Simulated assay, not measured.
Amino acid sequence: MEKYQLYATMGAGFESVVAKELQSLGYDTRTENGRVFFKGSQRDIVKTNLWLRTADRVKILLKEFKAMDFETLYNNVYEIDWAELLPVDAKFPVQGRSVRSKLHSEPGIQSIVKKAIVNKMSDQYHRRGFLPESGNVYPLDVHLYKDTARISLDTSGESLFKRGYRIEHGGAPLKENFAAGLLKLTPYDGSHPLIDPMTGSGTLAIEAALIGKNIAPGSWRQFAFDNFDWFDPTLHKNALIEAKAQIKPLQQPIWASDIDQSILEIAKLNANNAGVLQDIYFKQIAIKDFTTEMTNGIIITNPPYGKRLKDKQSAEALFTQMGEALLKYDSFSQYYLVGDPDFEKFFGKSATKKRKLFNGNLRVDFYQYWSNRNDFK
């Protein structure tokens, strides 16, 4: 099968996590900011879209070249064999981005790329400069960085965080791939108990169950490649059958609690849609009243902060309650995603390690407190 130059995109700070995921799926990788490159066939395009938990999209790199002016950009795009990729009625939206490049007008870049493709396809299909664009979508993008242009075809369509199990959103839910990324920054693999004591709409607990049960995160959705006319439709069907056969029982319990019963009902609906409702113990309980008999596991949560708790004082009071309720469980490794730089002061302990991340546009820290056991960090 033909091999493509592929790359996965991801949120800032998750490059190494996605690279590890790709390596564990059997690929050699090369990493740069926001992208991890690998090679693969149509089968690999299906596999990575289906299985990558922490990436945003999987794209085919069609061409890379230096472009300091619009003529060079136009000529290089025109040279691509577009009729091989796009049927005559293809709908092909072009997204453009430019960073630190001479060609800096993004609308201008998009329009030149679009014009070059239309003219080439008109020549190839013997049409006079008119293409109906009434068929399936082939999402294209052009990215310029320091005058190097990359033209890519997006095989995912909607971002991979849109798993398809989450129908209702709680107050400020974590994106699914962001939640999976946080879990991948812990030692969690399903072989230890996991607790989320402020679960909100349940995303962390559900993503943990998917990891623990080895359920492919893309199991519920379609991808852009499903509508490419040159793509083998049997590959996706077969990959889903194979993925189903690899699901295993959860080894250790997952506990998810919250003070708000109405948001827990949403979390249960989401868990049910993801097929993991039976694997998660949901309970309504305030953090100050939290207790557990479990040991040697992971506590991970995204406590309300920023817009979710407008009042800074109530956030700080909550962090103090968290410290009083949770720090005594020192056989657990503990992980907290918080947007308040004073978190440690109110929680009552300095983190073993801190990692700077961006949840959307919000700068946050991932505070890591390792357990008193050397084997679990």
Results as ranks from 00 to 15, higher is better:
Leu73Gln: 03
Leu103Phe: 15
Ala55Tyr: 00
Ala83Pro: 02
Phe92Glu: 01
Ala55Ser: 12
Phe92Ile: 00
Pro87Met: 11
Glu64Pro: 00
Gln95Thr: 14
Met68Phe: 15
Phe92Tyr: 07
Met68Cys: 08
Tyr78Asn: 05
Asp81Gln: 09
Leu86Asn: 00
Tyr74Ile: 12
Tyr74Phe: 15
Phe92Met: 05
Ala55Ile: 12
Tyr78Glu: 08
Pro93Asp: 14
Lys59Tyr: 05
Lys63His: 07
Val94Leu: 15
Phe65Pro: 03
Met68Gln: 09
Thr54Asn: 14
Asn76Lys: 11
Leu103Gly: 01
Glu64Ala: 03
Thr54Arg: 04
Ile80Pro: 10
Asp56Leu: 05
Phe70Arg: 01
Val58Trp: 01
Val58Glu: 08
Val58Cys: 11
Lys91Phe: 12
Ala90Gln: 07
Ala55Trp: 00
Gln95Tyr: 13
Phe92Ala: 01
Val94Thr: 06
Lys59Gly: 01
Thr54Val: 03
Glu64Val: 04
Ile60Thr: 11
Val99Phe: 15
Gln95Val: 13
Val94Pro: 04
Ser98Gln: 07
Val77Tyr: 02
Arg97Leu: 01
Glu71Met: 11
Arg97Asn: 13
Leu85Lys: 10
Asp81Glu: 14
Pro93Cys: 11
Phe70Ile: 05
Val77Cys: 08
Phe65Ile: 11
Leu85Tyr: 11
Gln95Cys: 06
Pro93Leu: 12
Arg97Pro: 02
Leu85Gln: 02
Gly96Val: 03
Val58Tyr: 03
Met68Gly: 12
Lys59Ser: 06
Gln95His: 15
Ser101Pro: 13
Ser101Met: 13
Arg100Asn: 15
Ala83Phe: 03
Lys59Met: 10
Asp69Pro: 04
Tyr74Asp: 04
Asp69Leu: 11
Glu64Met: 03
Thr54Met: 12
Arg57Val: 09
Ile60Asn: 09
Asn75Met: 14
Val58His: 04
Trp82Ile: 12
Glu79Cys: 08
Ile80Lys: 09
Arg57Glu: 05
Lys66Leu: 09
Glu84Ser: 15
Lys66Val: 11
Ser98Arg: 00
Val94Gln: 09
Ala55Arg: 02
Glu71Val: 13
Tyr78Lys: 11
Glu64Gln: 12
Thr72Ala: 09
Arg100Lys: 15
Leu85Ile: 14
Asp81Pro: 02
